[in-house]
Design a protein around this nucleic acid. Sequence first.
DNA 1: ATTATAATTCGATAATTCCAGAAATACAGT
DNA 2: ACTGTATTTCTGGAATTATCGAATTATAAT
Lengths: 108, 108
Amino acid sequence: MKTDFAASQLEALGKPTRLEIFRTLIRAGNEGLPVGALQERLDIAPSTLSHHLKTLLISGLITQERQATTLICRANYQSMQELIDYLMAECCIEGKGITEPGCSSSRC
Amino acid sequence: MKTDFAASQLEALGKPTRLEIFRTLIRAGNEGLPVGALQERLDIAPSTLSHHLKTLLISGLITQERQATTLICRANYQSMQELIDYLMAECCIEGKGITEPGCSSSRC
DNA sequence: ATTATAATTCGATAATTCCAGAAATACAGT
DNA sequence: ACTGTATTTCTGGAATTATCGAATTATAAT
């Protein structure tokens, strides 16, 4: 994974509003949620929500599927997992081989 | 973990420059790296690096320890792990109980 | 005290980002 | 075609952020 790509995903999650949107979708599971339902739950202006969803969509962290007039949004679990893996991927690679306290990477 | 706190950590990691700094420290392990070593490796202006380190420090993702004139920087593995846990904590909690493809949370 | 090294703060500029209201678009039903 | 609902795009002002050079602070050695 390229640094810029990972950073764009982290940045997408780096605002409370967008993080709440994402976590709401994470909670929703594979059923997902329509944009309108998100808008009601989180009480964000529709245009603002749309922008945030676009940011999350472009970053690959969510997907959208059209069902007639409503757009179902879903968290992209795979993308999320890849991001987490990236963060820890080379954990302690330069260390002296001793166990790194607090590091829960499989490497350490 | 509060949303705002998690978002501030994600935001700290959400710029390529800071993400590289952090991953360099993740690779370095518990030995850590002096600010100067980071500056050489990543070729960032000292003042810019200092600002980014401050951001990471405030967010709790790194720690610093003074050794005479040099400042040793270390990734905070525990803080990192808590952040990752937070992202997945309530994964699929509203789902119908069916396995969520792509979701690797222990819950699913 | 003086010097040297390490790192931060200051100040300034350019660029980015957030947010919401208004208008526009997409789609389904009548 | 018309209407209603859902969502996006356009626009722009306000606020934040990134970046760097220059000056400053902190610490240790002589």
